[in-house]
Nucleic acid binder design. Structure first.
Lengths: 145, 145
DNA sequence: CTTAATGGTTGACGTCGGAAACCAAGTGCA
DNA sequence: TGCACTTGGTTTCCGACGTCAACCATTAAG
């Protein structure tokens, strides 16, 4: 195995830890857990996403997804609406409060990234971005594991 | 806020999710949870690390760290030894089994990364690596949040 | 020698997500 | 139309997990 690949893996892992569940302070998300925030983010970016779609996107079972959305709804960030075409499916949408919250968190974290990278020139930033695009893209194509 | 920065943040977040707790299948780590694996990794890379150091490195309280190490010890991957210089502190070290396990998981994930990136030429891989080094380094300097 | 500080462990507790049973709404076929 | 089957979502039960606070043991300070 190429050492560079192993290094790349280890670096990704470290980055993932830092920006994942355990690297973040809880307070970062006010009354949202990391998982809830990610779900809200997903829902915010979609229109009329269903419970199961949310679950699939985030790797939760439908029952898990249902509960996460319960919590988000209870806090007023999303709203359930029964689909007009199929009475079984549940369309989830962000509320105004949810949109605002999601935007606020993105801004907060982006500010953190900004501080992280403020020494770097625009070319480097551009390079970082394209590298990350490659990684996210290939990870997506590669699927789970 | 510079749009590129926001993009960078979102990409990092997506990558983190994919390589974090929720993006991975459980079976990837055999009988280890993601957290346990990260702790084992940390311990493997250190010599005589203490319980609290482990906790600090991974953002757990000392009691949380103690229990994680309990589990690792029960499974035979690490061993506690009371320090020879201070009878209170507990030095944790990997066992042979633990070292093997950690290496195995790293290899497995590295193989995944290898598959992800197999189309790319060595220069691009090098670029990816240095970008990740920059990110991990600046994140580390920046600290929590 | 006594008191304070420090590293680690333990027990009670709340939170979380999965499995499976369940309910309601749609589908297919006679 | 009527009845079995499928499917999206919810709910109940449960085990796993990490924190808090109390606690024990060892060391440091006075």
């Amino acid at each position: 195995m190429d050492k560079n690949i192993i290094d790349v893996y280890n670096l990704i892992q470290e980055l993932a830890w830092h920006f994942g569940d355990h690297g973040l302070n809880d307070e970062c998300c006010e009354d949202l857990s990391y998982v809830e925030y990610m779900a809200l983010k997903k829902i915010s970016e979609s229109e009329n996403i269903t419970i199961q779609e949310t679950g699939n996107a985030l790797n939760f079972t439908k029952s898990g997804a249902s509960k996460i959305i319960d919590r988000l709804e209870k806090k007023g960030y999303v709203a359930r609406v029964t689909s007009s075409v199929d009475g079984r499916v549940c369309c989830v949408n962000k509320t105004a409060k949810g949109a605002e919250m999601a935007a606020g968190i993105v801004e907060k974290y982006s500010a953190y990234v900004h501080k992280m990278l403020k020494e770097l020139d625009p070319d480097t930033i551009g390079n970082i971005k394209s590298v990350l695009e490659i990684l996210v893209d290939s990870a997506h194509k590669q699927g789970a594991l």
